[in-house]
Computed example of a mutant assay.
Amino acid sequence: MEPTIEYAWKGGSQFLRFTGFARVDTVVENRTHADVREAKYVGVFGPLELTAGLDRRFWGVTEAVHLVNIINQVDTLEDVDFEDYLGQPLISAAYTTRFGTFSGFYMPYFRERLFPTGEDRPNLPVHVNRELTQYESGDNNWHSDWALRWAMDAGPVDLGVSYFSGFSREPRLLLSFNSFGQPQLIPRYDLIDQVGVDLQATLGALLLKFEGIHRWDPVNDYAAFAGGFEYTLYGVSAAGADLGILAEYLYDERGKGTPLAPGIPPFSNVSPYDDDLFVGLRWSGNDIATTEILGGAILDLDTKSKAFVLEASRRLGANLRISLDGRFFTSVSTRDVLYPLGDDDFLQLKLQWHY
């Protein structure tokens, strides 16, 4: 269940919004969880917009990976695509000028990432012990993070530049052993600084997309980027459907770690997208049921590992929506950080009732 309640006044220039979330899992107890996605006040005063409370913010333009998006923590219990986010306590201000929109964010509390336990799938081969979680700052969760962003659109170009300082939303997993000599992973959250750039150019039927970051952290400084295009063929069917062709190249200069033993992943904050190619097709039916299908594949140009993605949805009548999501891994190399997930294909059929 994901209810949203909103109350607005002064012509909608000020409003309160609450969005909750709750899931009950009948098989795996750990996946029964609840969260407040939004509980915020928003006030618009001419060119100034103020926000206070729990909020979700998304930055980025690429399809396969979201490098610059860093405000919110991922809800790893909800889905495997890393596109569901926890609400983030923050205070923000955005000021719009003819030179673009300047935004500032103050985040007084950090939300750590949850991990699968027990019989959850997908899962790591080694237990993650959150009770031993480490923070680089002595303030732990109460360390203050902050961010700045400038965004503008100039004709066909949308450009965003951001700076973030605070806890990494991705913990490093440190290998340790418990009192029984069994291996365990200890999450550690490092303080980082990150500069990000996202760019999209709309040239008729062609979209050019780019995201790039440079991050400074205690382990190593590195850069990563994703760039590509989406080209849309309009009216490819008698019903007026559109077909989009997508291609992106993904690069991360950290490369891949080396597994300590078969079945055990490398315990450093490396990315699976260090030298990868994403290709896909997007079908938009342009029909009354809003039929949409996205299918794609990510090929690791180094290890030759492959991952396939499927997302499809359409409305059923006025209140129902049915959707299908799939993630499939094939030929995952032992040198790949995704090796522990090599046997964990994922398929989800969802029926949503909106009222």
Score class of each variant (00 low, 15 high):
197 V>P: 03
199 L>N: 05
201 A>R: 04
202 T>M: 09
203 L>F: 11
203 L>H: 08
204 G>I: 02
204 G>S: 01
206 L>R: 02
207 L>A: 13
209 K>Q: 10
209 K>M: 00
210 F>D: 10
211 E>V: 05
211 E>S: 07
211 E>K: 06
212 G>L: 09
212 G>R: 15
212 G>Y: 05
213 I>T: 10
213 I>P: 03
214 H>T: 12
214 H>L: 01
214 H>S: 13
215 R>E: 14
216 W>P: 01
216 W>I: 11
217 D>G: 15
218 P>Q: 08
221 D>P: 06
221 D>R: 11
222 Y>K: 09
222 Y>W: 10
223 A>H: 15
223 A>E: 14
225 F>P: 11
225 F>G: 08
225 F>A: 13
226 A>H: 07
226 A>T: 15
227 G>K: 08
227 G>F: 11
229 F>Y: 14
230 E>K: 15
230 E>N: 12
231 Y>Q: 01
231 Y>C: 10
232 T>S: 08
233 L>D: 00
234 Y>L: 13
234 Y>N: 11
234 Y>A: 13
235 G>P: 05
235 G>E: 07
237 S>K: 08
237 S>I: 09
238 A>W: 11
238 A>E: 14
239 A>R: 14
241 A>S: 15
241 A>K: 03
242 D>T: 04
242 D>N: 13
242 D>Y: 08
243 L>D: 01
243 L>N: 03
244 G>I: 06
244 G>K: 05
245 I>S: 05
247 A>N: 09
248 E>Q: 11
249 Y>S: 01
249 Y>M: 01
250 L>K: 00
250 L>P: 08
251 Y>C: 01
251 Y>R: 14
252 D>G: 10
252 D>A: 05
253 E>G: 00
253 E>A: 04
253 E>T: 04
253 E>W: 04
254 R>G: 06
254 R>W: 07
258 T>V: 14
258 T>F: 03
259 P>C: 11
260 L>I: 15
261 A>K: 05
261 A>S: 12
261 A>I: 05
